[in-house]
Design a protein around this nucleic acid. Sequence first.
DNA 1: CGGAACCTACCGATCTACAGGTAGGTGGGT
DNA 2: ACCCACCTACCTGTAGATCGGTAGGTTCCG
Lengths: 191, 191
Amino acid sequence: MVRARSEERRAEILRAALEVIAERGYRGATLGSVAERVGLTQQGLLHYFPTKEALLIAVLEERDRWDTSGGRDREGWRLDLLESLVEYNAMRPGIVQTFSALLGESITDEHPARAFFTERYTQVRANMAQVLRLEFGDRLPSGLSPERAAPLLTAMMDGLQYQWLLDPSAVDMPAAFRDFLHLLHGGEERP
Amino acid sequence: MVRARSEERRAEILRAALEVIAERGYRGATLGSVAERVGLTQQGLLHYFPTKEALLIAVLEERDRWDTSGGRDREGWRLDLLESLVEYNAMRPGIVQTFSALLGESITDEHPARAFFTERYTQVRANMAQVLRLEFGDRLPSGLSPERAAPLLTAMMDGLQYQWLLDPSAVDMPAAFRDFLHLLHGGEERP
DNA sequence: CGGAACCTACCGATCTACAGGTAGGTGGGT
DNA sequence: ACCCACCTACCTGTAGATCGGTAGGTTCCG
């Protein structure tokens, strides 16, 4: 079955692209270096993905598929699952680095991932709000509405990732995130 | 006075570089486009900054000088000044975009700004801890120590910036930051 | 059963476009 | 006379993309 082999190849390429983007960002990544990693020439790679941008899109879509499937509930995340997600991320610097690099680049003008991230963050905030509503109802202990707290939750995850990627020994990402959740819960008891 | 003119030119170049980096990131920025913006040729620019990396370093150093001087107290920031800093930032998307883009890129391997950001974040966390200690003493209302809360404060500022840059209409950055400060203060009264 | 027609998965050569950087000037101000 | 602030010309490298193959397999038809 030739189809299967081909799909496998594509998957290999996507994985390699993920690595290279983590190491150098999208702009710094070259088709040649991705190709090399899977034992192809640059032209061979272009047989699977006609342009560099198409490759990026495929990477982003795969990510989308990934976190629209595993790790989620019927109606989204739950707060304790978020906590384990952060722990999980702390064990895969590669993936975190890829998407942090892409997020960073995406804010520049006309970046091909910009639309993707803009859209995705609206969606993530909505998800987060729902998670919070599920956990706290219409008001968090602090008095904040889930909708107001959602961007904070999102920002915390991203912000911690940057600090952690720059200097993993200086920031215990999962612990810090737990501290934040503790804050959302209203503080009080000593951690 | 030629000296003055020269310094002025350098400053112009730095400002232009800031803009171009905001638009395309460091890797995407070209010497030519920076030069063009100040009415020079690329080679004319290289007269002032011998390499692209030297220009970047100068940009980073200027930033360092900027926020080691203005906006600070003798012993660092105060919490309410941080709040106005965020408000101030919300009025200068350009600058925020430059440094968010650079932060994003800097996590990739061998990026010339990586050391700068790593070092700077250790320092920022220390500053933040001191701000918090000044405001709350050795325990925040939540029971967290200033040192544990410092990375959270830092992460929140960065994380909100990305969301805001991607979609300013979707996130009221200053308001969100105030919400977070409210959280640090222990919540309670309704905003 | 054999072969023409076609498809898939590539590779080599090559094009175009910049990009960063160097060498060696020129011209105006002091 | 000199030097600072530039410029022109140029070199080298690299990146993405196109073109035109070729080798191997698959399909279909007589």
